[in-house]
């Protein structure tokens, strides 16, 4: 079972390859979209590379749940509802949902996707 640092270093390598960013830009707090410039198609690429680099299978939708922002029952007036936040907590236990809940604007959902979130997800996956 790799240490947290080992997982992080491998995630950093993966993101450097997938996104063409510099090593030092990849910090645990960095957001994939805002800080590292990831676009939607990059998420598919990132998952391919993580699967290969860590030799694991990542079921689609597990690391990056899809259709969060477009599910109308979970969003009202541009804000994610309490029900939606509960759903996020359930589907993304690896993300810092509490931070998001303080300002649950739909456009802030992408801030859940951080480098640290990926590391946490993988640690859990690798220890399973």
């Amino acid at each position: 079972m790799p240490t947290s640092d080992e997982v992080f270093n491998k995630v950093r390598e993966t993101l450097v390859d997938a996104l063409g960013v510099d090593d030092d830009e990849v910090t645990p707090e960095a957001t994939l979209v805002g800080d590292l410039g990831a676009e939607s198609i990059d998420f598919l690429d990132i998952i391919f590379r993580l699967e290969k680099n860590f030799n694991i299978k990542i079921p689609r939708g597990e690391l990056f749940p899809e259709n969060l922002a477009t599910d109308e029952s979970l969003v009202k007036d541009g804000l994610v509802t309490a029900e939606g936040i509960e759903k996020l907590r359930a589907s993304m236990p690896h993300a810092d949902v509490s931070k998001f809940a303080a300002n649950p604007k739909v456009e802030n959902i992408q801030e859940l996707f951080t480098v640290g979130m990926i590391v946490k997800f993988l640690e859990k996956k690798l220890s399973a």
């Binding site: 598919l44 690429d45 391919f48 590379r49 699967e51 290969k52 689609r60």
Partner: peptide, 10 residues
């Protein structure tokens, strides 16, 4: 082919 998955490949 470096990687092949049902939803794509590299």
């Amino acid at each position: 082919l470096l990687d092949l998955q049902p939803d794509g490949g590299i």
